[in-house]
Computed example of a mutant assay.
Amino acid sequence: MAATVTTDGPKPVLDKPLMRYGRRTLERLAPGAETPQYRILGISPLTPHIGAEISGVDLSRPIGEELAAELRQALLEWKVVFFRGQAGLQPCHHLDLAAVWGPPEANPFFPEAGTAGVSRLAKDAMAIGNENIWHSDHSFMAAPALGSVLRSVEVPSAGGDTMWADMGAAYDNLSEKMKARIENLAAVHDWVPSWGSTMTGEQIADFRTSLPPVEHPVVVRHPRNGRRLLYVNEPFTTRIVGLSDTESRELLDELVLQARVPEFQVRFHWEQDSVAIWDNIATQHYAISDYFPRRRVMERIAVAGVPLS
């Protein structure tokens, strides 16, 4: 969309304002929620509303119910949480940690790391640029992944950070007119435009039998706290149901920009033996592909989700 910029005023004049100016609404908690208290975990926020580093826990040790409850609460509050110095974490511990939220969910397009449910993501010269787009994991499934647990196996000396965007904030900062417009809309999510771009027609047909296009509300309610969230993303959301192709494309082009607002984001610099856990419904993420020719090797477990409403 073209913009006309004046040289004598304090701000640009847009022929169509894609994002509103002024103060951002940045609420960490769902409406009406009380501020949690923690007895075990140390919480160090990276921003006021999304992302916190957690100390005081060795993830290779057994996770009791009190610790599990605090981990669940921390993720619900901060949407993505980080741990450093977890050298003792093995695949069995990785699975136990993910089980705090639910059973593992395989990604049909990722190779497993030798342990069922654990996917190995090795990014090098053959994978440059593949991961640098804002997205929600598995939104092309009828019950998208509730979350993911990612640990670093090999990290580059510089670069390779990951960013997360708070999709509650993305929704909160839409205009009231836009909120009303999208409240009851649904969108189609499909893996073919992204994952299918490297497949043959026969391979696409094979996957299509178990992974048809699915529909999700454009505005979803978080399954655990009821917070309204904007649920569209660039690679997997293909159209808005009930709109013309042109109107659907224009609306999606506007909505996906919300993930790109810096005030809604947190950025994490990986070190060896770091772990990130994120709420895949409340956030989108973006793996920054800036480390070629160095390697970045991660292991990930996705947590099975539920249909969204």
Rank of each mutant, 00 (worst) to 15 (best):
E53W: 04
V266S: 08
E53P: 03
H189F: 04
M19T: 14
T47A: 08
R267V: 05
V220E: 10
H269S: 15
M298Q: 06
K177V: 12
D15I: 13
G56M: 03
P144V: 02
R249P: 00
D161N: 14
H216N: 06
L75I: 03
Q86P: 05
A99V: 00
N225D: 15
L75P: 02
R221F: 03
R300D: 09
D15F: 08
P36R: 04
V149Q: 01
V57N: 06
V261N: 05
R228H: 05
F268K: 03
A113I: 05
A145E: 11
R296G: 03
S60P: 04
I288R: 10
W134Q: 03
I182T: 00
L41Y: 06
R39P: 00
E131G: 14
I288H: 07
E131P: 01
E112H: 12
V303Q: 06
P103M: 06
Q90W: 00
H222W: 00
G147S: 06
D15G: 07
A106Q: 11
V57C: 08
V261W: 02
E215V: 13
F207W: 15
V218E: 11
S244G: 15
S197E: 15
N107V: 13
R23K: 12
W278Y: 05
D15C: 07
R61Y: 03
P213W: 11
G168N: 05
D124Q: 12
Q258E: 15
E66Y: 07
P213M: 12
D124C: 09
